[in-house]
Amino acid sequence: MTAVRLVRSRTLTEHVDYAYAATVTGPLRAVWTAGACPLDEKGATVAVGDVAGQAERVMRNLRTALADAGADLTDIVKTTVYVASPRQEDLVAAWEVVRSHMGGHDAPSTLLGVAALGYDDQLVEVEAVAVTAAPRTPEP
C-alpha cells in the first residue's frame, strides 16, 4: 500500500493530466532525488539532439535511482521536468515520455523550459520527491 494520495481539485480544470497536489500519511520515509540525466553507464549523454530519446533514458535512470533508495515511480509525490529548449513542442515531447512512464500515477509536476542543463548535449532532466512507508525496525 502506498503512503501517497493524489488530490484532484473540484474547482480547477479537469483538463490536465496530473493531480494538483499530493498528501502522505503514516510513518513515512522521504526520498529526494538528484535530477535524473540522460547518461549511459559510461557517463556519456545519450540520444543527442532527441528530446524524447533523452526523456526515455532519464525516466529509466530515475526509476533505477528510486529503486536503489527503496522506492518506485508510484511513490512520487512531485516531479520537476527541465527541458533545455524555448520551444513548447520540445517540452510537450519530454512530458509525453514522462507521463507514459508514470502511467496512472499522475503526481503533481512542474514542466520548465530552461536555457541550459549541466552535461554536454543534455536536453532533459527530471527530479522527484517520493514518500514510502517507513521500514519497520527489527524487534530487539
Rank of each mutant, 00 (worst) to 15 (best):
A67K: 02
A133E: 13
A22R: 04
E125K: 13
A19G: 00
Q122Y: 02
Q88L: 10
E89S: 15
L62T: 00
V126Y: 07
G35P: 12
L6E: 05
A22V: 07
L28D: 03
V4C: 03
A55L: 03
E127F: 05
R136T: 11
S85W: 04
A128F: 12
L28T: 15
Q54Y: 03
R87L: 12
L66F: 06
A44D: 12
D72R: 12
A94R: 01
T64A: 15
A34T: 09
V131I: 06
V92P: 01
L111M: 14
P138M: 10
P38T: 05
A30D: 01
T80L: 13
A47Y: 06
E14P: 10
A19C: 00
R99V: 10
A134Q: 12
A67P: 01
V31I: 15
E56S: 08
Y82T: 04
V31A: 07
M1V: 11
R29Q: 11
A36L: 11
V4H: 01
V24A: 14
V129I: 12
R10M: 08
T45G: 05
L111T: 12
P27T: 13
G70C: 09
V81K: 02
L112P: 04
P86W: 09
G113R: 11
V7F: 08
G113K: 11
T33D: 05
L28G: 03
Q88P: 09
L111F: 14
T64P: 03
L123T: 02
A133P: 02
A21F: 01
L62R: 00
A133C: 09
I76N: 07
A52M: 02
A44C: 11
G26A: 08
P138D: 08
P86D: 15
T80V: 15
D17V: 04
P108L: 00
V114A: 13
Q54F: 06
R99L: 12
S100H: 11
V131Q: 02
V129D: 04
D121H: 15
V98D: 09
R63H: 10
D72H: 12
G53D: 13
A128P: 05
A22G: 04
P140W: 12
P38H: 06
P86Q: 13
